[in-house]
Design a protein around this nucleic acid. Structure first.
Lengths: 207, 207
DNA sequence: GTCTATATACCGATAGAC
DNA sequence: GTCTATCGGTATATAGAC
Protein backbone atom coordinates (compact mmCIF):
# COMPACT_ATOMS: atom_id res chain seq x y z
CA UNK A 1 0.00 0.00 0.00
CA UNK A 2 2.78 2.36 1.00
CA UNK A 3 4.84 1.56 -2.07
CA UNK A 4 1.89 1.88 -4.37
CA UNK A 5 1.10 5.50 -3.43
CA UNK A 6 4.76 6.45 -3.82
CA UNK A 7 4.72 5.02 -7.32
CA UNK A 8 1.74 7.15 -8.29
CA UNK A 9 3.30 10.29 -6.91
CA UNK A 10 6.48 9.54 -8.83
CA UNK A 11 4.64 9.02 -12.07
CA UNK A 12 2.99 12.40 -11.59
CA UNK A 13 6.14 14.35 -10.91
CA UNK A 14 7.63 12.83 -14.03
CA UNK A 15 4.64 14.02 -16.00
CA UNK A 16 5.27 17.51 -14.77
CA UNK A 17 8.90 17.53 -15.82
CA UNK A 18 8.57 15.94 -19.23
CA UNK A 19 7.58 17.93 -22.30
CA UNK A 20 9.47 20.98 -21.09
CA UNK A 21 11.09 22.78 -24.01
CA UNK A 22 14.18 23.54 -21.96
CA UNK A 23 15.74 23.78 -18.54
CA UNK A 24 15.16 27.52 -18.08
CA UNK A 25 11.44 27.16 -18.67
CA UNK A 26 11.31 24.30 -16.19
CA UNK A 27 13.14 26.28 -13.55
CA UNK A 28 10.90 29.31 -14.01
CA UNK A 29 7.69 27.30 -13.81
CA UNK A 30 8.81 25.23 -10.86
CA UNK A 31 9.79 28.27 -8.83
CA UNK A 32 6.89 30.42 -9.97
CA UNK A 33 4.55 27.77 -8.60
CA UNK A 34 6.09 28.10 -5.17
CA UNK A 35 5.95 31.88 -5.20
CA UNK A 36 2.37 32.16 -6.47
CA UNK A 37 1.22 29.97 -3.62
CA UNK A 38 3.02 32.11 -1.03
CA UNK A 39 2.03 35.51 -2.44
CA UNK A 40 -1.05 35.05 -4.60
CA UNK A 41 -1.28 36.03 -8.26
CA UNK A 42 -1.55 39.80 -7.87
CA UNK A 43 0.94 39.82 -4.99
CA UNK A 44 3.64 38.07 -7.01
CA UNK A 45 6.04 40.27 -8.95
CA UNK A 46 7.90 38.97 -11.96
CA UNK A 47 11.02 39.89 -10.05
CA UNK A 48 9.93 37.54 -7.24
CA UNK A 49 9.70 34.66 -9.67
CA UNK A 50 12.99 35.57 -11.31
CA UNK A 51 14.73 35.82 -7.96
CA UNK A 52 13.39 32.46 -6.77
CA UNK A 53 14.53 30.84 -10.02
CA UNK A 54 17.92 32.57 -9.92
CA UNK A 55 17.40 34.65 -13.05
CA UNK A 56 17.15 38.35 -13.73
CA UNK A 57 13.76 39.99 -14.03
CA UNK A 58 14.02 40.67 -17.75
CA UNK A 59 15.10 37.15 -18.58
CA UNK A 60 11.74 35.70 -17.69
CA UNK A 61 10.26 37.54 -20.66
CA UNK A 62 12.48 35.62 -23.04
CA UNK A 63 10.35 32.58 -22.33
CA UNK A 64 6.96 33.94 -21.33
CA UNK A 65 4.94 36.86 -22.65
CA UNK A 66 3.33 37.79 -19.35
CA UNK A 67 2.72 36.87 -15.73
CA UNK A 68 -0.69 35.51 -16.65
CA UNK A 69 0.87 33.19 -19.21
CA UNK A 70 3.16 31.70 -16.57
CA UNK A 71 0.27 31.27 -14.19
CA UNK A 72 -1.91 29.67 -16.83
CA UNK A 73 0.79 27.22 -17.83
CA UNK A 74 1.28 26.20 -14.20
CA UNK A 75 -2.43 25.76 -13.69
CA UNK A 76 -2.67 23.52 -16.73
CA UNK A 77 0.19 21.31 -15.58
CA UNK A 78 -1.19 21.00 -12.05
CA UNK A 79 -4.71 20.19 -13.23
CA UNK A 80 -3.42 17.57 -15.67
CA UNK A 81 -1.25 15.97 -13.01
CA UNK A 82 -4.11 15.85 -10.57
CA UNK A 83 -6.45 14.21 -13.05
CA UNK A 84 -3.82 11.71 -14.02
CA UNK A 85 -3.63 10.53 -10.41
CA UNK A 86 -7.32 9.77 -10.19
CA UNK A 87 -7.25 7.94 -13.49
CA UNK A 88 -4.24 5.99 -12.31
CA UNK A 89 -6.01 4.93 -9.12
CA UNK A 90 -9.22 4.13 -10.99
CA UNK A 91 -7.30 1.59 -13.05
CA UNK A 92 -6.03 -0.25 -9.99
CA UNK A 93 -6.91 -3.90 -9.57
CA UNK A 94 -8.53 -3.50 -6.16
CA UNK A 95 -11.88 -2.83 -4.48
CA UNK A 96 -13.48 0.63 -4.75
CA UNK A 97 -12.87 1.43 -1.08
CA UNK A 98 -9.22 0.50 -1.43
CA UNK A 99 -9.00 2.78 -4.45
CA UNK A 100 -10.41 5.67 -2.42
CA UNK A 101 -8.05 4.84 0.40
CA UNK A 102 -5.01 4.97 -1.87
CA UNK A 103 -6.26 8.08 -3.55
CA UNK A 104 -6.58 9.78 -0.17
CA UNK A 105 -3.08 8.75 0.72
CA UNK A 106 -1.75 10.29 -2.48
CA UNK A 107 -3.92 13.42 -2.34
CA UNK A 108 -2.92 14.20 1.23
CA UNK A 109 0.79 13.42 0.87
CA UNK A 110 2.90 16.54 1.47
CA UNK A 111 5.10 18.29 -1.11
CA UNK A 112 3.65 16.81 -4.27
CA UNK A 113 2.31 18.25 -7.49
CA UNK A 114 -1.20 17.35 -6.35
CA UNK A 115 -0.74 19.49 -3.26
CA UNK A 116 0.24 22.34 -5.53
CA UNK A 117 -2.87 21.74 -7.55
CA UNK A 118 -4.97 22.05 -4.42
CA UNK A 119 -3.17 25.23 -3.50
CA UNK A 120 -3.76 26.73 -6.92
CA UNK A 121 -7.42 25.77 -6.68
CA UNK A 122 -7.56 27.63 -3.38
CA UNK A 123 -5.90 30.63 -4.95
CA UNK A 124 -8.42 30.51 -7.76
CA UNK A 125 -11.27 30.25 -5.26
CA UNK A 126 -10.17 33.02 -2.96
CA UNK A 127 -9.30 35.62 -5.60
CA UNK A 128 -11.51 34.52 -8.44
CA UNK A 129 -12.03 37.95 -9.97
CA UNK A 130 -8.36 38.50 -10.62
CA UNK A 131 -7.75 35.18 -12.35
CA UNK A 132 -7.17 34.90 -16.10
CA UNK A 133 -10.22 33.58 -17.95
CA UNK A 134 -8.15 30.69 -19.21
CA UNK A 135 -7.41 29.36 -15.72
CA UNK A 136 -11.04 29.70 -14.71
CA UNK A 137 -11.83 27.35 -17.56
CA UNK A 138 -9.02 24.94 -16.71
CA UNK A 139 -10.01 24.57 -13.07
CA UNK A 140 -13.70 24.32 -13.78
CA UNK A 141 -13.30 21.51 -16.30
CA UNK A 142 -10.81 19.74 -14.08
CA UNK A 143 -13.17 19.91 -11.09
CA UNK A 144 -16.08 18.47 -13.06
CA UNK A 145 -13.96 15.61 -14.32
CA UNK A 146 -12.58 14.88 -10.86
CA UNK A 147 -16.02 14.71 -9.29
CA UNK A 148 -17.22 12.46 -12.09
CA UNK A 149 -14.28 10.08 -11.71
CA UNK A 150 -14.75 9.81 -7.96
CA UNK A 151 -18.46 9.25 -8.42
CA UNK A 152 -17.75 6.30 -10.68
CA UNK A 153 -15.61 4.65 -8.02
CA UNK A 154 -18.14 5.39 -5.27
CA UNK A 155 -21.04 3.97 -7.27
CA UNK A 156 -19.15 0.78 -7.90
CA UNK A 157 -18.48 0.62 -4.17
CA UNK A 158 -22.16 1.04 -3.42
CA UNK A 159 -23.04 -1.80 -5.77
CA UNK A 160 -20.82 -4.23 -3.89
CA UNK A 161 -21.88 -2.82 -0.50
CA UNK A 162 -18.57 -1.22 0.46
CA UNK A 163 -19.70 2.39 0.37
CA UNK A 164 -22.55 4.08 2.22
CA UNK A 165 -25.84 4.26 0.32
CA UNK A 166 -26.13 7.99 -0.19
CA UNK A 167 -26.16 10.26 -3.23
CA UNK A 168 -22.69 9.60 -4.68
CA UNK A 169 -22.41 13.22 -5.83
CA UNK A 170 -22.86 14.35 -2.23
CA UNK A 171 -20.28 11.86 -1.05
CA UNK A 172 -17.86 13.02 -3.73
CA UNK A 173 -18.28 16.66 -2.75
CA UNK A 174 -17.84 15.74 0.89
CA UNK A 175 -14.72 13.83 -0.03
CA UNK A 176 -13.17 16.76 -1.85
CA UNK A 177 -14.14 19.11 0.95
CA UNK A 178 -12.18 16.93 3.33
CA UNK A 179 -9.14 16.57 1.10
CA UNK A 180 -9.07 20.29 0.32
CA UNK A 181 -9.46 21.02 4.00
CA UNK A 182 -6.48 18.85 4.81
CA UNK A 183 -4.43 20.75 2.24
CA UNK A 184 -5.38 23.97 4.02
CA UNK A 185 -4.52 22.67 7.47
CA UNK A 186 -1.25 21.36 6.12
CA UNK A 187 -0.31 24.79 4.79
CA UNK A 188 -1.22 26.47 8.04
CA UNK A 189 0.79 24.21 10.30
CA UNK A 190 3.64 23.13 8.07
CA UNK A 191 5.61 21.48 10.84
CA UNK A 192 3.32 19.71 13.26
CA UNK A 193 0.52 17.80 11.62
CA UNK A 194 -2.05 16.23 13.87
CA UNK A 195 -4.58 14.50 11.70
CA UNK A 196 -6.71 11.40 12.23
CA UNK A 197 -5.76 8.33 10.20
CA UNK A 198 -7.17 8.02 6.70
CA UNK A 199 -9.25 5.09 7.86
CA UNK A 200 -10.95 7.42 10.33
CA UNK A 201 -11.35 10.32 7.93
CA UNK A 202 -13.10 8.07 5.47
CA UNK A 203 -15.63 7.13 8.12
CA UNK A 204 -18.36 9.17 6.45
CA UNK A 205 -18.01 7.25 3.19
CA UNK A 206 -17.56 3.68 4.36
CA UNK A 207 -20.56 1.52 4.96
CA UNK B 1 -32.04 22.77 16.86
CA UNK B 2 -32.79 24.83 13.78
CA UNK B 3 -33.82 27.85 15.79
CA UNK B 4 -30.85 27.60 18.07
CA UNK B 5 -28.24 27.89 15.31
CA UNK B 6 -30.04 30.87 13.82
CA UNK B 7 -29.87 32.59 17.20
CA UNK B 8 -26.13 32.13 17.41
CA UNK B 9 -25.60 33.46 13.91
CA UNK B 10 -27.74 36.48 14.76
CA UNK B 11 -25.81 37.20 17.90
CA UNK B 12 -22.61 37.15 15.87
CA UNK B 13 -23.73 39.52 13.19
CA UNK B 14 -24.79 41.91 15.90
CA UNK B 15 -21.32 41.69 17.39
CA UNK B 16 -19.88 42.68 14.07
CA UNK B 17 -22.08 45.74 13.72
CA UNK B 18 -21.85 47.07 17.23
CA UNK B 19 -18.94 49.24 18.37
CA UNK B 20 -18.64 50.86 14.98
CA UNK B 21 -17.68 54.52 15.33
CA UNK B 22 -19.99 55.51 12.50
CA UNK B 23 -21.99 54.39 9.49
CA UNK B 24 -19.34 55.20 6.89
CA UNK B 25 -16.77 53.02 8.64
CA UNK B 26 -19.29 50.20 8.85
CA UNK B 27 -20.12 50.44 5.16
CA UNK B 28 -16.47 50.48 4.16
CA UNK B 29 -15.56 47.48 6.30
CA UNK B 30 -18.58 45.46 5.29
CA UNK B 31 -17.94 45.96 1.59
CA UNK B 32 -14.18 45.67 1.84
CA UNK B 33 -14.67 42.23 3.32
CA UNK B 34 -16.60 41.11 0.25
CA UNK B 35 -14.05 42.53 -2.17
CA UNK B 36 -10.97 41.16 -0.41
CA UNK B 37 -12.44 37.68 -0.62
CA UNK B 38 -13.12 38.02 -4.34
CA UNK B 39 -9.81 39.64 -5.30
CA UNK B 40 -7.27 38.86 -2.58
CA UNK B 41 -5.36 41.47 -0.61
CA UNK B 42 -2.87 42.54 -3.26
CA UNK B 43 -5.49 42.31 -6.01
CA UNK B 44 -7.88 44.66 -4.28
CA UNK B 45 -7.54 48.35 -5.06
CA UNK B 46 -8.75 51.00 -2.68
CA UNK B 47 -10.94 52.14 -5.54
CA UNK B 48 -12.56 48.68 -5.63
CA UNK B 49 -13.51 48.97 -1.99
CA UNK B 50 -14.74 52.54 -2.43
CA UNK B 51 -16.82 51.56 -5.44
CA UNK B 52 -18.41 48.59 -3.67
CA UNK B 53 -19.25 50.82 -0.68
CA UNK B 54 -20.55 53.60 -2.90
CA UNK B 55 -17.89 56.16 -1.95
CA UNK B 56 -15.13 57.89 -3.84
CA UNK B 57 -11.61 56.52 -3.69
CA UNK B 58 -10.19 59.40 -1.68
CA UNK B 59 -12.94 59.27 0.91
CA UNK B 60 -11.79 55.94 2.26
CA UNK B 61 -8.66 57.66 3.52
CA UNK B 62 -10.71 59.89 5.77
CA UNK B 63 -11.37 56.83 7.91
CA UNK B 64 -8.42 54.52 7.32
CA UNK B 65 -4.74 55.22 6.90
CA UNK B 66 -4.05 52.37 4.49
CA UNK B 67 -5.34 49.24 2.81
CA UNK B 68 -3.53 47.12 5.37
CA UNK B 69 -5.31 48.91 8.18
CA UNK B 70 -8.70 48.07 6.67
CA UNK B 71 -7.68 44.48 6.18
CA UNK B 72 -6.38 44.18 9.71
CA UNK B 73 -9.55 45.62 11.19
CA UNK B 74 -11.67 43.18 9.20
CA UNK B 75 -9.51 40.27 10.27
CA UNK B 76 -9.84 41.23 13.90
CA UNK B 77 -13.62 41.45 13.70
CA UNK B 78 -13.95 38.14 11.89
CA UNK B 79 -11.65 36.32 14.28
CA UNK B 80 -13.50 37.70 17.29
CA UNK B 81 -16.88 36.76 15.85
CA UNK B 82 -15.70 33.25 15.08
CA UNK B 83 -14.37 32.71 18.58
CA UNK B 84 -17.53 34.06 20.11
CA UNK B 85 -19.53 31.37 18.30
CA UNK B 86 -17.51 28.53 19.75
CA UNK B 87 -17.74 30.01 23.23
CA UNK B 88 -21.47 30.42 22.76
CA UNK B 89 -21.88 26.79 21.78
CA UNK B 90 -19.59 25.60 24.57
CA UNK B 91 -21.94 27.19 27.07
CA UNK B 92 -24.96 25.30 25.78
CA UNK B 93 -26.86 23.02 28.10
CA UNK B 94 -26.50 19.90 25.97
CA UNK B 95 -24.24 16.91 25.38
CA UNK B 96 -20.79 17.39 23.79
CA UNK B 97 -21.82 15.71 20.54
CA UNK B 98 -24.86 17.93 20.29
CA UNK B 99 -22.62 20.95 20.82
CA UNK B 100 -20.38 19.85 17.97
CA UNK B 101 -23.41 19.19 15.83
CA UNK B 102 -24.76 22.72 16.39
CA UNK B 103 -21.36 24.22 15.91
CA UNK B 104 -21.06 22.48 12.56
CA UNK B 105 -24.44 23.76 11.54
CA UNK B 106 -23.39 27.31 12.36
CA UNK B 107 -19.91 27.05 10.89
CA UNK B 108 -21.18 25.67 7.60
CA UNK B 109 -24.18 28.00 7.23
CA UNK B 110 -23.79 30.21 4.15
CA UNK B 111 -23.43 34.01 4.14
CA UNK B 112 -22.41 34.52 7.75
CA UNK B 113 -19.57 36.33 9.44
CA UNK B 114 -18.06 32.96 10.30
CA UNK B 115 -17.93 32.08 6.62
CA UNK B 116 -16.08 35.32 6.02
CA UNK B 117 -13.69 34.41 8.76
CA UNK B 118 -12.96 31.12 7.03
CA UNK B 119 -12.45 32.92 3.77
CA UNK B 120 -10.05 35.38 5.34
CA UNK B 121 -8.16 32.49 6.89
CA UNK B 122 -7.88 30.95 3.43
CA UNK B 123 -6.63 34.23 2.04
CA UNK B 124 -4.08 34.40 4.83
CA UNK B 125 -3.02 30.82 4.12
CA UNK B 126 -2.67 31.12 0.38
CA UNK B 127 -0.81 34.44 0.26
CA UNK B 128 0.90 34.43 3.62
CA UNK B 129 3.95 36.45 2.58
CA UNK B 130 1.91 39.46 1.56
CA UNK B 131 -0.13 39.66 4.76
CA UNK B 132 0.42 42.38 7.36
CA UNK B 133 2.29 41.09 10.42
CA UNK B 134 -0.64 42.12 12.58
CA UNK B 135 -3.09 39.78 10.81
CA UNK B 136 -0.64 36.91 10.99
CA UNK B 137 -0.72 37.33 14.76
CA UNK B 138 -4.51 37.65 14.87
CA UNK B 139 -5.17 34.48 12.91
CA UNK B 140 -2.52 32.46 14.67
CA UNK B 141 -3.86 33.26 18.13
CA UNK B 142 -7.43 32.73 17.00
CA UNK B 143 -6.58 29.32 15.53
CA UNK B 144 -4.89 28.14 18.70
CA UNK B 145 -7.83 29.21 20.80
CA UNK B 146 -10.32 27.55 18.47
CA UNK B 147 -8.51 24.24 18.53
CA UNK B 148 -8.28 24.41 22.33
CA UNK B 149 -11.99 25.13 22.70
CA UNK B 150 -12.98 22.28 20.42
CA UNK B 151 -10.62 19.95 22.24
CA UNK B 152 -12.33 20.73 25.51
CA UNK B 153 -15.71 19.73 24.08
CA UNK B 154 -14.31 16.59 22.47
CA UNK B 155 -12.58 15.45 25.66
CA UNK B 156 -15.77 15.83 27.60
CA UNK B 157 -17.49 13.77 24.91
CA UNK B 158 -14.88 11.06 25.23
CA UNK B 159 -15.40 10.93 28.99
CA UNK B 160 -19.08 10.16 28.59
CA UNK B 161 -18.45 7.82 25.65
CA UNK B 162 -20.04 9.95 22.94
CA UNK B 163 -16.86 10.70 20.98
CA UNK B 164 -14.34 8.31 19.45
CA UNK B 165 -11.34 7.48 21.66
CA UNK B 166 -8.58 9.10 19.67
CA UNK B 167 -6.15 11.97 20.29
CA UNK B 168 -8.57 14.90 20.69
CA UNK B 169 -6.07 17.26 19.04
CA UNK B 170 -6.11 15.06 15.95
CA UNK B 171 -9.89 14.97 15.95
CA UNK B 172 -10.03 18.75 16.33
CA UNK B 173 -7.65 19.27 13.40
CA UNK B 174 -9.67 16.83 11.33
CA UNK B 175 -12.81 18.70 12.27
CA UNK B 176 -11.42 22.04 11.16
CA UNK B 177 -10.09 20.52 7.98
CA UNK B 178 -13.59 19.38 7.15
CA UNK B 179 -15.27 22.67 8.02
CA UNK B 180 -12.67 24.69 6.12
CA UNK B 181 -13.04 22.32 3.19
CA UNK B 182 -16.77 22.87 3.15
CA UNK B 183 -16.19 26.62 3.07
CA UNK B 184 -14.00 26.10 0.01
CA UNK B 185 -16.49 23.90 -1.78
CA UNK B 186 -19.21 26.38 -0.96
CA UNK B 187 -17.27 29.20 -2.58
CA UNK B 188 -16.52 27.15 -5.66
CA UNK B 189 -20.08 26.08 -6.35
CA UNK B 190 -22.09 28.95 -4.97
CA UNK B 191 -25.37 27.77 -6.46
CA UNK B 192 -25.66 24.02 -6.25
CA UNK B 193 -24.44 22.55 -3.03
CA UNK B 194 -24.31 18.80 -2.78
CA UNK B 195 -23.00 17.90 0.63
CA UNK B 196 -23.70 14.96 2.92
CA UNK B 197 -25.72 15.68 6.05
CA UNK B 198 -23.89 16.92 9.10
CA UNK B 199 -24.68 13.66 10.84
CA UNK B 200 -22.74 11.85 8.13
CA UNK B 201 -19.86 14.31 8.00
CA UNK B 202 -19.34 13.90 11.73
CA UNK B 203 -18.98 10.16 11.26
CA UNK B 204 -15.24 10.28 11.91
CA UNK B 205 -15.76 11.87 15.33
CA UNK B 206 -18.73 9.99 16.73
CA UNK B 207 -18.25 6.80 18.63
C1' DG C 1 -18.67 65.07 4.87
C1' DT C 2 -17.54 63.97 0.42
C1' DC C 3 -15.34 64.56 -4.07
C1' DT C 4 -11.67 65.73 -7.65
C1' DA C 5 -7.08 66.29 -8.86
C1' DT C 6 -2.36 65.21 -8.38
C1' DA C 7 2.58 63.47 -6.70
C1' DT C 8 4.88 59.71 -5.86
C1' DA C 9 6.15 55.12 -6.13
C1' DC C 10 6.08 50.80 -8.02
C1' DC C 11 5.69 47.15 -11.36
C1' DG C 12 4.98 44.94 -15.89
C1' DA C 13 6.91 44.78 -20.17
C1' DT C 14 10.43 46.21 -23.79
C1' DA C 15 14.78 47.27 -25.86
C1' DG C 16 19.26 47.06 -26.26
C1' DA C 17 24.10 45.77 -24.35
C1' DC C 18 27.49 42.02 -23.55
C1' DG D 1 21.70 33.14 -23.37
C1' DT D 2 21.44 36.37 -19.89
C1' DC D 3 21.61 40.99 -17.87
C1' DT D 4 20.83 46.17 -17.25
C1' DA D 5 18.34 50.19 -18.23
C1' DT D 6 14.23 52.34 -19.18
C1' DC D 7 9.37 53.50 -20.59
C1' DG D 8 4.68 53.63 -19.65
C1' DG D 9 0.85 52.51 -17.01
C1' DT D 10 -1.45 51.99 -12.74
C1' DA D 11 -2.39 52.38 -7.72
C1' DT D 12 -1.54 54.43 -3.22
C1' DA D 13 -1.88 58.20 -0.61
C1' DT D 14 -2.34 63.32 -0.16
C1' DA D 15 -4.04 67.89 -0.70
C1' DG D 16 -7.18 70.97 -1.71
C1' DA D 17 -12.05 72.30 -3.54
C1' DC D 18 -17.11 72.41 -2.65
Amino acid sequence: MERESKQIVDKMEKGFLKDMPNESVRRILENAMKVFVRRGLAGTRISDIAKEAGFSQGFVYNHFASKDEIFTEISRLAAEGSLRVIEEVSGFDSTPYEKIYWLTEVLTAPDTLVQHHFKLVLLQTISYETMPDETKKIFKESAIKQIADICKILEEGQRIGEIKQEDPVKLAFGYFAMVQGIAVIRMQSSKQMFLPDIENLLGFIKK
